[in-house]
């Protein structure tokens, strides 16, 4: 620059001008991304960055996995931990079985539900590890899993784990996919009460951990959800983005205010979002990819 004189004046001017430029650039980016929505010009860039950083995240996760296990070794020995893991898995499987029993009974009582129950046992799963978690500072609850389009995972697929519904795939690169957890504030899941089949919408509250709860708004405000009611997904057309009959959580309390036209139930999710590791992505039957497809509901 020609006007580079010693002294702070011009230099400060220059950095102010630069600040203005950068702020404008950021605002342009935000506007572009916000206005264009799904056809955002930033989406190709996003998936480009994803396909470069995804494998890096995967490699870092693989490299640091032993450290995570090392931390566990201090608490108890390996075989005990193995026993605990097996028992916990069995427990949560039994719990979700018990939880869906009232629903299944109701369904059976309904004439046409038989075929639906039969079709529900036909879900196929692709198993994946959670390799990265979006920081809470970003105020969105998303995780990266190590399965992508090469394993048959694409956008708007249901993600579950041993305990229940986890979320849905919002973005997929060839080797990784981004999952929006149901506790995120932007997540809305169609839910159904297990005891009376009433439908409603389950929204995330943005917090996880012990205080992580979901909110259920019932469509019919004359219905009173009761404590302990199990909420399952009601499912969408062709199972996009959520397939039917996946347990979400259990009603913990009911809040009804005269101002609100509908009753709100507080739902405690089955899945533990602070300890997500192995998850399953529900894929269409007959999916072929670079990793094996597990057929769920093998038990008759």
């Amino acid at each position: 620059m020609a006007r580079r004189i010693s002294g702070r004046g011009p230099e400060q001017d220059r950095s102010r001008r630069m600040l203005g430029l950068f702020v404008l650039a950021c605002l342009t980016l935000i506007t572009l991304d916000a206005r264009a929505g799904a056809s955002s010009p930033l989406n190709p860039v996003r998936s480009g960055v994803g396909s470069v950083l995804g494998p890096v995240e995967d490699a870092t996760a693989t490299a640091t996995r032993p450290f995570d296990q090392l931390a566990g070794m201090f608490r108890s020995n390996r075989s005990l931990r193995g026993d605990i893991a097996t028992l916990t898995a069995e427990n949560s499987r039994l719990r979700s079985e018990v939880a869906t029993v009232p629903l299944d009974r109701k369904r059976l009582a309904e004439y046409d539900a038989l075929s639906q129950t039969a079709s529900e046992t036909g879900y196929s799963l692709v198993a994946a590890h959670v390799i990265a978690v979006g920081p809470m500072q970003s105020f969105s609850r998303t995780v990266t899993i190590d399965a992508g389009t090469s394993s048959g995972v694409t956008k708007d697929m249901t993600v579950i784990n041993n305990d229940g519904l986890v979320g849905r795939v919002v973005d997929a690169t060839s080797s990784t996919a981004t999952v929006l957890l149901i506790v995120d504030t932007t997540s809305v899941v169609g839910g159904r009460l297990g005891t009376n089949l009433e439908i409603g919408f389950v929204r995330g509250r943005g917090t996880l951990g012990d205080s992580g709860r979901l909110t259920l708004d019932l469509v019919d405000n004359a219905v009173e959800p009761s404590r302990g009611d199990v909420v399952v997904t009601w499912g969408s057309k062709d199972g996009v983005p959520y397939v039917a009959g996946i347990p979400i959580g259990v009603v913990e309390s009911v809040v009804s205010s005269p101002l609100n036209s509908s009753r709100q139930a507080v739902v405690k999710p089955f899945a533990d979002f602070t300890a997500l590791d192995v998850v399953g992505v529900v894929v269409p039957n007959g999916t072929h990819g670079d990793r094996p497809v597990i057929t769920a509901g093998g038990t008759p």
Binding site: L27, T28, D33, S40, L42, A132, V143, T178
Partner: peptide, 10 residues
């Protein structure tokens, strides 16, 4: 833009 992010870019 890095994978787990889902908010507006920028």
């Amino acid at each position: 833009l890095a994978p787990p992010a889902d908010h507006l870019a920028g």
